[in-house]
């Protein structure tokens, strides 16, 4: 059993609170609930070397778990549709203000088979002539932030996830008729 100190939980709680408050992301206002999830994130960090989603079973291999490293690829869609992420760590602005209780949210992550099928399609197809632009375009898979530069940024300036969460966008120009 991994023991996480109270201080470590408090530290991550305060850094997540200040990081998110100015970026349009909201932690669950039920602080006891939120801190318990944060403790689980720290347990997973210890166990796997990254903060895998506490409510999903991680494989332990980072490349297979990229989509479920908190914040996961599914957070923004779930917050938009259900008012909270799958675990309930992040909530919508409305829920953060009203403190309405959250309900269980269906799993949005595709099944393992479907994930394996689409894992080779990290490049988003948009065109045939991708060499017509000077810089490649990168898309943050978590928040959708786009940037055009030689390499994806080290950290997403919008949502703060690491470079390996970006996918290269393949630009396709449709021939004019």
């Amino acid at each position: 059993m991994i023991n996480i100190s109270k201080n470590a939980v408090e530290d991550l709680f305060s850094s997540l609170s200040s990081f998110n408050s100015c970026r349009g992301y909201f932690l669950n206002p039920d602080t006891a609930f939120t801190k318990s999830l944060i403790e689980s994130l720290l347990i997973n960090d210890d166990r796997y070397g990254y903060q895998a989603c506490p409510c999903r079973l991680a494989s332990g291999e980072r490349s297979l778990d990229l989509d479920i490293i908190c914040p996961c690829d599914y957070r923004d869609s779930d917050v938009a549709e259900f008012g909270a992420c799958y675990c309930g760590l992040y909530v919508s602005r409305q829920l953060a203000q009203t403190g309405e209780p959250i309900k269980p949210i269906p799993e949005r992550r595709p099944t393992k088979q479907d994930r394996l099928k689409s894992s080779n399609k990290k490049e988003i197809a948009m065109s045939e002539e991708s060499n017509s632009i000077k810089y490649p375009i990168w898309r943050c898979e978590v928040c959708g932030y786009l940037c055009a530069r030689d390499e994806a940024p080290d950290t997403c300036p919008i949502c703060g996830v690491s470079r390996d969460r970006f996918a290269k966008v393949n630009i396709v120009t449709v021939a004019a008729k």
Partner: peptide, 9 residues
């Protein structure tokens, strides 16, 4: 269940 999952708890 998962030991880390709040809904499981």
């Amino acid at each position: 269940t998962l030991s880390t999952c709040i809904w499981c708890r």
